[in-house]
Protein backbone atom coordinates (compact mmCIF):
# COMPACT_ATOMS: atom_id res chain seq x y z
CA UNK A 1 0.00 0.00 0.00
CA UNK A 2 1.33 3.45 -0.84
CA UNK A 3 0.46 6.20 1.62
CA UNK A 4 -0.14 9.64 0.13
CA UNK A 5 -0.57 12.35 2.73
CA UNK A 6 -1.20 15.92 1.61
CA UNK A 7 1.02 18.69 2.88
CA UNK A 8 -0.56 21.52 4.82
CA UNK A 9 -0.37 23.70 1.73
CA UNK A 10 -2.13 21.09 -0.39
CA UNK A 11 -4.87 20.75 2.22
CA UNK A 12 -5.41 24.50 2.48
CA UNK A 13 -5.51 24.86 -1.29
CA UNK A 14 -7.95 21.95 -1.49
CA UNK A 15 -10.16 23.62 1.10
CA UNK A 16 -10.63 26.62 -1.17
CA UNK A 17 -12.99 24.50 -3.25
CA UNK A 18 -14.02 22.01 -0.59
CA UNK A 19 -14.02 23.50 2.93
CA UNK A 20 -14.24 20.01 4.39
CA UNK A 21 -10.60 19.51 3.43
CA UNK A 22 -9.72 22.04 6.12
CA UNK A 23 -10.45 19.33 8.69
CA UNK A 24 -6.96 18.02 8.06
CA UNK A 25 -5.42 21.30 9.17
CA UNK A 26 -7.57 21.34 12.30
CA UNK A 27 -6.81 17.72 13.20
CA UNK A 28 -3.13 18.10 12.53
CA UNK A 29 -2.46 21.35 14.39
CA UNK A 30 -5.13 21.85 17.01
CA UNK A 31 -3.14 20.26 19.84
CA UNK A 32 -0.03 22.39 19.41
CA UNK A 33 -1.92 25.66 18.91
CA UNK A 34 -4.26 24.98 21.84
CA UNK A 35 -1.43 24.05 24.20
CA UNK A 36 0.44 27.24 23.33
CA UNK A 37 -2.65 29.34 24.01
CA UNK A 38 -3.45 27.41 27.16
CA UNK A 39 0.04 28.00 28.48
CA UNK A 40 -0.45 31.70 27.96
CA UNK A 41 -4.01 32.40 29.13
CA UNK A 42 -5.47 29.25 30.68
CA UNK A 43 -7.81 26.60 29.41
CA UNK A 44 -11.14 28.43 29.21
CA UNK A 45 -9.83 31.41 27.28
CA UNK A 46 -7.62 29.13 25.18
CA UNK A 47 -10.64 27.21 23.89
CA UNK A 48 -12.26 30.37 22.63
CA UNK A 49 -9.03 31.66 21.14
CA UNK A 50 -8.34 28.32 19.47
CA UNK A 51 -11.82 28.28 17.96
CA UNK A 52 -11.33 31.82 16.71
CA UNK A 53 -7.88 30.96 15.34
CA UNK A 54 -9.17 28.14 13.19
CA UNK A 55 -12.29 30.08 12.25
CA UNK A 56 -10.18 32.98 11.01
CA UNK A 57 -7.79 30.61 9.29
CA UNK A 58 -10.66 28.99 7.42
CA UNK A 59 -12.08 32.38 6.49
CA UNK A 60 -8.72 33.59 5.19
CA UNK A 61 -7.59 30.36 3.52
CA UNK A 62 -7.68 32.00 0.10
CA UNK A 63 -4.90 34.34 1.20
CA UNK A 64 -2.66 31.55 2.49
CA UNK A 65 0.70 31.51 0.72
CA UNK A 66 0.84 27.97 -0.66
CA UNK A 67 4.59 28.20 -1.21
CA UNK A 68 4.88 27.45 2.51
CA UNK A 69 4.22 23.74 3.00
CA UNK A 70 3.82 24.09 6.79
CA UNK A 71 0.71 25.92 8.04
CA UNK A 72 2.00 26.33 11.61
CA UNK A 73 3.55 29.80 11.19
CA UNK A 74 0.32 30.99 9.60
CA UNK A 75 -1.80 29.53 12.40
CA UNK A 76 0.53 30.85 15.11
CA UNK A 77 0.39 34.26 13.45
CA UNK A 78 -3.40 34.30 13.77
CA UNK A 79 -3.26 33.02 17.36
CA UNK A 80 -0.66 35.61 18.38
CA UNK A 81 -2.77 38.37 16.88
CA UNK A 82 -5.71 37.25 18.99
CA UNK A 83 -3.51 37.06 22.08
CA UNK A 84 -2.74 40.78 21.81
CA UNK A 85 -6.11 41.53 23.36
CA UNK A 86 -5.12 39.49 26.40
CA UNK A 87 -1.69 40.94 27.15
CA UNK A 88 -2.82 42.97 30.17
CA UNK A 89 -4.64 40.04 31.71
CA UNK A 90 -1.67 37.80 31.05
CA UNK A 91 0.76 40.22 32.69
CA UNK A 92 -1.56 40.62 35.66
CA UNK A 93 -1.64 36.86 36.22
CA UNK A 94 2.12 36.52 35.78
CA UNK A 95 2.70 39.21 38.42
CA UNK A 96 0.23 37.50 40.76
CA UNK A 97 2.13 34.24 40.30
CA UNK A 98 5.41 36.02 41.01
CA UNK A 99 4.06 37.58 44.21
CA UNK A 100 2.47 34.58 45.90
CA UNK A 101 4.00 31.56 44.18
CA UNK A 102 0.67 30.08 43.12
CA UNK A 103 -0.13 30.01 39.45
CA UNK A 104 -3.52 31.73 38.84
CA UNK A 105 -4.03 29.35 35.92
CA UNK A 106 -4.07 26.47 38.45
CA UNK A 107 -7.70 27.34 39.22
CA UNK A 108 -8.66 25.63 35.98
CA UNK A 109 -5.54 23.53 35.42
CA UNK A 110 -5.12 20.81 38.07
CA UNK A 111 -1.71 19.90 36.70
CA UNK A 112 -0.43 23.35 37.68
CA UNK A 113 -1.85 23.19 41.18
CA UNK A 114 1.16 23.41 43.48
CA UNK A 115 3.11 26.04 45.37
CA UNK A 116 6.38 26.80 43.69
CA UNK A 117 8.78 26.09 46.51
CA UNK A 118 11.75 26.14 44.18
CA UNK A 119 10.94 29.72 43.15
CA UNK A 120 12.10 29.23 39.57
CA UNK A 121 8.54 29.41 38.30
CA UNK A 122 7.94 32.64 40.22
CA UNK A 123 11.11 34.14 38.81
CA UNK A 124 10.22 33.19 35.25
CA UNK A 125 6.71 34.57 35.73
CA UNK A 126 8.11 37.86 37.05
CA UNK A 127 10.58 38.06 34.18
CA UNK A 128 7.97 37.33 31.53
CA UNK A 129 5.72 40.02 32.96
CA UNK A 130 8.53 42.57 32.65
CA UNK A 131 9.34 41.86 29.01
CA UNK A 132 7.94 44.05 26.29
CA UNK A 133 4.99 42.21 24.70
CA UNK A 134 6.65 41.96 21.27
CA UNK A 135 9.80 40.53 22.83
CA UNK A 136 7.81 38.11 25.00
CA UNK A 137 5.89 36.96 21.91
CA UNK A 138 9.00 36.25 19.83
CA UNK A 139 10.73 34.54 22.76
CA UNK A 140 7.79 32.24 23.52
CA UNK A 141 7.36 31.28 19.86
CA UNK A 142 11.03 30.30 19.99
CA UNK A 143 11.00 28.51 23.37
CA UNK A 144 7.48 27.04 23.55
CA UNK A 145 6.37 26.68 19.92
CA UNK A 146 9.97 25.75 18.98
CA UNK A 147 9.74 27.62 15.70
CA UNK A 148 12.98 28.54 13.95
CA UNK A 149 13.65 32.21 13.33
CA UNK A 150 12.40 32.13 9.75
CA UNK A 151 9.04 30.73 10.79
CA UNK A 152 8.72 33.21 13.67
CA UNK A 153 9.33 35.96 11.13
CA UNK A 154 6.60 34.53 8.91
CA UNK A 155 4.18 34.21 11.84
CA UNK A 156 4.75 37.77 13.06
CA UNK A 157 5.18 39.23 9.56
CA UNK A 158 8.47 40.89 10.47
CA UNK A 159 12.01 40.50 9.10
CA UNK A 160 14.20 37.70 10.41
CA UNK A 161 16.70 40.27 11.66
CA UNK A 162 14.00 41.81 13.82
CA UNK A 163 13.19 38.37 15.24
CA UNK A 164 16.85 37.83 16.12
CA UNK A 165 17.18 41.18 17.85
CA UNK A 166 13.90 40.82 19.80
CA UNK A 167 14.84 37.34 21.01
CA UNK A 168 18.36 38.46 21.88
CA UNK A 169 17.00 41.39 23.92
CA UNK A 170 14.38 39.19 25.57
CA UNK A 171 16.93 36.55 26.54
CA UNK A 172 19.36 39.13 27.87
CA UNK A 173 16.58 40.70 29.96
CA UNK A 174 15.40 37.26 31.13
CA UNK A 175 18.92 36.39 32.33
CA UNK A 176 19.19 39.70 34.19
CA UNK A 177 15.80 39.30 35.86
CA UNK A 178 16.39 35.68 36.81
CA UNK A 179 19.79 36.58 38.26
CA UNK A 180 18.29 39.50 40.17
CA UNK A 181 15.72 37.15 41.69
CA UNK A 182 18.48 34.94 42.99
CA UNK A 183 18.13 32.25 40.31
CA UNK A 184 21.46 31.14 38.91
CA UNK A 185 21.46 31.09 35.15
CA UNK A 186 24.25 29.39 33.25
CA UNK A 187 25.94 31.19 30.43
CA UNK A 188 24.33 30.04 27.18
CA UNK A 189 26.29 29.48 24.00
CA UNK A 190 23.50 29.12 21.44
CA UNK A 191 22.33 32.13 19.54
Amino acid sequence: MVSVEPTDAEAVVASRDDPRAFALIFDRHFDTIFRYLRRRVGRGCAEELAAETFSQALASRHRFDASHTDARPWLYGIAVNLLRHHYRGEERELRAYARCGVDPLAAEEPSLERIDTVATGRAVAAALAELAPVEREALLLYAWAELPYGEIAAALDIPVGTVRSRIHRARTRLIELLAASGQYVEETVDG
Binding site: T120, V185, E187
Partner: peptide, 19 residues
Protein backbone atom coordinates in the same frame (compact mmCIF):
# COMPACT_ATOMS: atom_id res chain seq x y z
CA UNK B 1 20.00 25.59 34.05
CA UNK B 2 20.04 28.16 31.25
CA UNK B 3 17.28 30.71 30.74
CA UNK B 4 15.71 28.89 27.79
CA UNK B 5 15.47 25.66 29.78
CA UNK B 6 13.90 27.56 32.68
CA UNK B 7 11.40 29.03 30.25
CA UNK B 8 10.61 25.65 28.68
CA UNK B 9 9.87 24.19 32.12
CA UNK B 10 7.41 26.99 32.93
CA UNK B 11 3.87 25.55 32.83
CA UNK B 12 5.27 22.50 31.04
CA UNK B 13 3.02 20.24 33.13
CA UNK B 14 0.13 20.96 30.79
CA UNK B 15 -0.73 17.86 28.72
CA UNK B 16 0.30 17.69 25.08
CA UNK B 17 -3.18 16.66 23.96
CA UNK B 18 -6.64 17.52 25.17
CA UNK B 19 -9.30 15.52 23.38
Amino acid sequence: MDEITALKLFRNELPERDA
